[in-house]
Design a binder for these strands. Structure first.
Length: 533
DNA sequence: GAAAAGGAAGTAACCCGATT
DNA sequence: AATCGGGTTACTTCCTTTTC
């Protein structure tokens, strides 16, 4: 059945339930005083019904479901349904009621929408399934030979998307995260049939952005969680927002509340996102404002919320309304200058009071449309972490990725720059047993310089393409391959740079074919191919 | 030889029920 | 509603082993 029909029919069920609830025949559950009573949650074909575990309510519910089935013509499959009882219902009572309804009892350990429905103490075990998913996916792709560029797409679009669903409302444990990164790194550096191989770079270094010399793999976990926090603040009318607000911060705002007692796992996660929200969120001030001056982020262009105060006696109690003229939407300049230090006062006066903002509303300052985006949040958080481990690798990485060449060629250049191209010399440095000499000419040691510029065949192919005139002067000036290639890539003519990149890739490809498949191309042919790509 | 992985042990955090 | 404590689980740190 089409999903739309499902929704239409479900509306009917929802209405039915509402009627019965309002008559008092069935009571929804309330997890806390002040939270809305929830009697049902519907998600496409899945229905969650909540009610008291008494015989009358059970029979009422069954009657309701029967009339729904008759009216809609939809059979409810009781064998596929499950019931979960609270701990304080004794065993015989549970069995009786389950029997009346004709459904299984569950312990609550099952999964719903690919998420564990109850998260207990051993989260490691609860979330271990993520690793299985990933492993399956990787295995299903093993055996196909993917270029590094292909693997990049695969990793970014497929593999990292698997945990993202779970990541959107729970922070994955470090241990599991470590394993995931390990798996991805193995996949990245591994060969066709095996995930083994020299891991030339740690995953953390691949997570640098492309401009910083990495490949831009990301970990969005915290940012996705923060998105939920943003929703919680900006959409107070959503059911979840209401429930969480009533349970955890009934009298204060989301940003200033303490963790509270008996916090749930999800609340813990949301709660942690506050400090990241304060980095990118700003209040837009409405007509009547309850924003507390000291504890809420509402100033523009300030990284810290706290500041120095002149007459600091009760600033913690005042809100924005107190430093504003009544009736007119303007700052009370006199008052502000009296209470705050000079700099702070200037900052305050810079905050615009917009006529068309009626109510206080939270906006995301990193985006034009002021709506939270995981992407901008990621860069924001990262910019705050720069003083820690994250530092960029030296080099002009921008020009590398801007070259007009197929991605596979650019990836090869990147590997050369990063010093992780498995030439014989490099392999021996990593203590892999192999002969040191070039496999094509067997004259000299195989290092990058020799492969791409020194070897007889390659030299010839440079001439064939007519690019030799470009690189010849460089050969004498630079001793370092990186600097040489970089110089060629930064020449104005992007088409030429692209040709150089392609030819380099063809040379490397030819070398690999020669070594592994004993299949060697003529230099002239290489040159021609590179020229016409 | 270097980096990653594994192990052990001590410490912090957490869950959850009991208590008032 | 809030706090406390017992028992687990997770994290940290340091060290050794393994792998290429």
């Amino acid at each position: 059945m089409s999903p739309y029909l499902f929704v239409l029919v479900a509306e009917g069920l929802s209405a039915l339930i509402n009627i019965v609830v309002s008559k008092g025949d069935i009571h929804g559950i309330q997890i806390f005083r002040g939270t809305p009573k929830v009697s049902h949650l519907l998600f496409t074909g899945d229905y969650f019904l909540f009610y008291r575990a008494t015989l009358t309510e059970v029979t009422n519910l069954m009657g309701l479901l029967r009339s729904y089935a008759e009216a809609s013509g939809q059979e409810i499959n009781m064998t596929k349904s499950e019931v979960f009882f609270s701990h304080n219902i004794c065993r015989p009572a549970r069995e009786d009621m389950a029997c009346i309804m004709g459904v299984h009892q569950v312990l609550g350990t099952s999964m719903y929408l690919r998420l564990p429905s109850i998260i207990g103490r051993s989260k490691k075990a609860n979330f271990a399934f993520i690793k299985d998913h990933l492993l399956k996916k990787i295995n299903s792709w093993r055996g196909r030979s993917l270029s590094k560029a292909g693997k990049e797409v695969m990793t970014k679009l497929v593999l990292q998307a698997i945990p993202s669903y779970i990541m959107s409302d729970s922070v994955i444990l470090d241990d599991i995260m470590k394993d995931i990164k390990k798996m991805l790194n193995c996949f990245w550096w591994g060969g066709i049939n095996t995930n083994k191989g020299v891991m030339w770079l740690a995953w953390e270094k691949l997570m640098y952005s492309k401009k910083e010399g990495g490949l831009g793999f990301r970990d969005f976990n915290m940012d996705m969680v923060t998105k939920q926090g943003f929703h919680m603040m900006t959409k107070p009318k959503m059911l979840v927002s209401k429930v969480f607000k009533a349970r955890y911060y009934p009298r204060s705002s989301f940003l200033e509340v303490s963790l509270g007692n008996n916090p749930s796992f999800v609340w813990r996660t949301l709660w942690r996102s506050r400090k990241f929200l304060t980095l990118g969120c700003r209040w837009s001030i409405g007509d009547v404002s309850r924003i507390k001056v000291m504890s809420e982020p509402w100033l523009r262009g300030m990284n810290k919320v706290a500041w120095e105060v002149l007459k600091g006696k009760c600033v913690y109690d005042i809100n924005v309304d107190n430093v504003r003229l009544t009736n007119v939407k303007q700052w009370d300049v006199q008052e502000i200058r009296d209470v705050f230090t000079h700099d702070v006062a200037n900052d305050i006066l810079k905050v615009p009071l917009l006529e068309d903002v009626l109510e206080d509303s939270m906006v995301w300052k990193e985006e034009q449309n002021e709506v939270y985006r995981v992407k901008s949040s990621y860069w924001l958080l990262r910019s705050f972490q720069t003083n820690r481990l994250i530092c960029r690798e030296e080099g002009d990485w921008g020009s590398l990725w801007n070259i007009k060449a197929p991605p596979r060629a650019k990836h090869l250049l990147w590997r050369i720059f990063r010093g992780c191209l498995p030439t014989r010399k490099k392999l021996r440095q990593h203590f892999v047993q192999c002969t040191p000499n070039c496999q094509l000419c067997e004259n000299s040691e195989e290092d990058e310089c020799h492969v791409f510029f020194g070897c007889g065949t390659t030299n010839q192919s440079w001439r064939e393409t007519g690019l030799y005139s470009n690189i010849e002067p460089c050969l004498n000036n630079f001793s370092d391959v990186n600097a040489l290639i970089l110089d060629i890539c930064s020449i104005k003519d992007m088409r030429n740079a692209g040709r150089v990149a392609v030819l380099i890739w063809m040379i490397w490809n030819n070398r690999n074919n020669a070594i592994w498949n004993n299949d060697r191309e003529e230099a002239s042919k290489l040159g021609m191919q590179a020229y016409h790509t």
